[in-house]
Design a protein around this nucleic acid. Structure first.
Lengths: 108, 108
DNA sequence: TTATATTATTCCTTATAAGGAATATTCTTG
DNA sequence: CAAGAATATTCCTTATAAGGAATAATATAA
């Protein structure tokens, strides 16, 4: 798992940007206005997100439309797979315990 | 989604620690030795992970056993849910396109 | 209680990231 | 090409995080 991805996500402004881009791809100016950020900051944050592979750009006239890029999110998802086993195992043990409480199953 | 979680994950040493703790809960000294970190750094990283809710401690004699805590990972998982729709939508469109290529379906 | 093992904290220095302000760049249109 | 709109970059200052070294704190055992 790439730490750059998490690093890019470790900022509330950038989380807000991503959240906004989930609704629809949009330009720097639109993002800046909706989040009440100034334009240079917005561009900088988008640069970080872009370098982390979380977004991609598509020029349109003299504007640049940013949109989410699925791959990096999928990478996080795959990374989480390893950890899913952990909490599923925990859930299994809970299920067992609940069964014991209901007399469906003896304690080992 | 809490940016503190991502911030804690945005460090390769801490990702290594988490990876190690997935195998089994273990003490500060064991972690430090396996990852070739010195003890103070290891404690500091564990403190960050602990404050982010990614690990928890269980004292055992004069050692402190750290283990992963499922909740924060599940929080990431839930956060990813919103974004899963994105790539699933993309996959659906790809499926449609493949169907078109195979003559199973007309182009809209 | 003293010695020892284990872990946490503090202090310091250095590196990295964020925000503001100003400016540069790029693209489009007249 | 000139003007204007949209975006990117640079410079500066400040805040935050990381690592090393030393030390403090805590718990166990003799």
């Amino acid at each position: 798992m790439n730490e750059q991805t998490f690093s890019a996500l470790a900022d509330s402004n950038r989380l807000d940007i991503i959240d906004l881009l989930l609704k629809e791809p949009q330009s720097v100016g639109e993002i800046a206005e909706k989040l009440e950020l100034n334009q240079p900051q917005t561009s900088k944050h988008l640069k970080v997100l872009n370098e982390a592979g979380l977004v991609e750009v598509q020029p349109e006239a003299n504007r640049r439309i940013y949109k989410l890029k699925a791959e990096s999110f999928q990478e996080i998802d795959r990374w989480l797979d390893s950890y899913r086993k952990m909490w599923e195992a925990r859930m299994d043990r809970l299920d067992d315990y609940l069964d014991v409480l209901q007399g469906k199953k003896p304690l080992n």
